[in-house]
Design a binder for these strands. Structure first.
Lengths: 222, 222
DNA sequence: ATTATCTATAGATCTATAGATAATGC
DNA sequence: ATTATCTATAGATCTATAGATAATGC
């Protein structure tokens, strides 16, 4: 039976142990993510992480062997989400009828929305990659997969591109947009730079720049 | 008397104490810079820094009160160099006869050369800014000063710029180039991105992109 | 006499464990 | 009976100091 909207958020029964366990683990990962992003991995102690997750140091060690294993678990969670999202997003059928500019604009918009939603995620992942070479190479592979996926979509539309070397132009543009998006999230405080302007204006100027460089049509929504 | 070129590198006399002191301090700063950049501030112990500088922990504490004071000293050194360089580079007389594209190309080339020469400096400074709010705001001021200086040079040549909003275009372009340069230094390993291409090709494509967006002339050297 | 360095170590901090208690599952 | 959590703490690591030694300056 479907519960009424009034009741749907209430829980009369106690949670099972598995739920409890999952929740603690997730809370520990969330806290680790935030603290790693803010203070670096070395700057976040296990006591900090446990306290932020609302549990004890003992509980921490019940779920994770040590700090390193949290690092790997955190990356695992990130990698799974990242792959799943990209698999859906890069499906060729999804983009039937789309032009080069539409795909690039979507890339910008989706990345902005993602990073706004989870502001610590990007920085925490950077920290993980720096601390663990294994994670670093995994992360490079993940990003390369996304780049290749978008490249495929764009190169399939190479006839639209007026730039004399479409492959080079695609590589350059993905690097350019990726760099700007990263800076926009990591350094929002620079008074003289574009971080002060709203996301919409950023997307607009970025598309103008990209379209002028590649010599493609400006997407309709801009 | 000018010493012969054979002798100019030899030192028969012992260094004075002040030289010795200065050298140890500089070596400690250099080591701290490198280790902060590689492992983060929390990941670099005082023992690590001292060992890398070729001195003891005791010597460290003779020169610096604690880790924090090295952080400030390191930033101080960076800030001084940065300001001095920019004061010279941003002199309006220096750029007489230069066009917008010339100035932007010089910005790209000088930044590349600087970062190649001191690969750890940028990352270490990022770490310092994150650890100390005081350093962070100082750093923002320094960068803002450079941005404003370049902006002034470019806006003084606004007649060359075809973009409908020259001020906006200048802000956007400085953000764009700055972002790409930063990514180029910090993430050189991405196989699908432009880091794989040589600096000359990067500068070329960056200038093509910027000139197409701003609607200015491509500088002669590109 | 002063400055720079070293070795050795006390004290602080952090990690990781042991042993006890509380919550669920059968 | 099993799983999840807690408190208390041993052991490891790091910071920062004390006291001794070596190098320069007068």
């Amino acid at each position: 039976m479907k519960r009424s909207k009034w009741a749907s958020d209430l829980h009369w029964v106690r949670e099972g142990q598995q739920d409890r366990s999952r929740k603690t683990q997730a809370a520990l990962l969330d806290s680790a993510e935030e603290l790693f992003a803010e203070h670096g991995i070395g700057g976040a102690t296990i006591a900090d992480i446990s306290a932020a997750a609302g549990c004890s140091i003992g509980a921490f060690y019940h779920h994770y062997q040590d700090k390193r294993s949290v690092q790997f678990a955190l990356f695992e969670r990130y990698a799974t989400e990242y792959e799943d999202t990209n698999r859906i997003a890069l499906d060729h059928e999804r983009w039937e009828g789309a032009q080069v500019g539409d795909i690039l604009l979507a890339y910008v918009q989706v990345t902005l929305a993602n990073d706004r939603g989870f502001p610590a995620r990007r920085q925490a992942t950077v920290e993980l990659a720096r601390a663990e070479p294994e994670i670093n190479s995994q992360l490079i592979k993940l990003k390369a997969m996304l780049d290749l996926g978008i490249s495929d979509l764009l190169i399939a539309r190479r006839d639209e591109i007026g730039h004399p070397d479409p492959e080079l132009a695609v590589t350059f543009v993905l690097d350019q947009l990726g760099s700007m998006l990263r800076t926009r999230m990591q350094e929002p405080d620079m008074p003289t730079r574009f971080g002060q302007h709203p996301d919409e204006d950023f997307a607009h100027e970025a598309m103008c720049s990209v379209c002028a460089y590649m010599q493609i049509e400006l997407p309709a929504e801009v």
